[in-house]
């Protein structure tokens, strides 16, 4: 009967509402741009139900039941983990003020070939590189000495306001001379 220990991060979008469904799980409702509703029900069993309700209706037009794994895959796709549309400059996941973003290094980036310590990413931008998605083997919790390569997808974590600084830092040369060859 005590209030449950805080386990959910606060909602960050004004379009999103949520409440408990006693005996079933938790319900999230997202108001879509056209006035319709998307309702996600997360069951205690891990099952997710996705309801799509068109504007002006009470009954859903489509209902999909997903397993835990399927739901995570769909969530990752929607979050842009696999493919980021070019028109969208930033796709971020914000959880309670903490931001997780994916950042791909193209071959022209001055950061290619330099190590994380060398780039002073944390000191200069406040963001942390949590993992590097790289073929054939992703690197989790990379050491400071890890050298970045062209095509690396950096998974970065930090405060939302520091993201722009990181983008500038990795897109523009860190040193005074942009033509300076990377060491090594």
């Amino acid at each position: 009967m005590n209030p449950p220990a805080p386990r959910k991060p606060p909602l960050t979008s004004p379009d999103l509402t949520d409440h408990d469904l006693p005996g079933i799980g938790h319900r999230y409702e997202l108001r879509s741009a056209d006035g319709g509703r998307v309702v996600v029900v997360i069951h205690h069993s891990g099952r997710r139900d996705l309801y799509v309700v068109e504007p002006g209706h009470d009954e859903p037009q489509a209902v999909v039941a997903l397993t835990d794994t399927q739901a995570r895959t769909l969530g990752a796709i929607l979050g842009g983990a696999y493919f980021k549309p070019a028109v969208v400059e930033e796709i971020e996941a914000v959880i309670g003020g903490l931001l997780i973003d994916w950042f791909t290094l193209d071959a022209g980036s001055p950061a290619v070939g330099r190590s994380i310590a060398d780039l002073e990413i944390r000191r200069r931008t406040g963001m942390t590189v949590a993992a590097i998605v790289r073929d054939p083997q992703p690197v989790t919790a990379p050491e400071p000495g890890e050298r970045l390569q062209a095509g690396d997808q950096l998974v970065v974590i930090g405060r939302q306001e520091d993201l722009a600084r990181l983008r500038r830092h990795l897109a523009a040369p860190p040193g005074p001379d942009p033509s300076e060859a990377p060491d090594g």
């Binding site: 469904l21 006693p22 319900r27 509703r37 309702v39 309801y51 309700v53 009470d58 009954e59 209902v63």
Partner: peptide
């Protein structure tokens, strides 16, 4: 769950009555 009514506004009330 089976009647796919969890998105309906009255479903919360039903569970509340329960």
């Amino acid at each position: 769950i089976e009647l796919r009514r969890l998105a309906n506004p009255e479903s919360r009330l039903i569970l509340g009555i329960i």
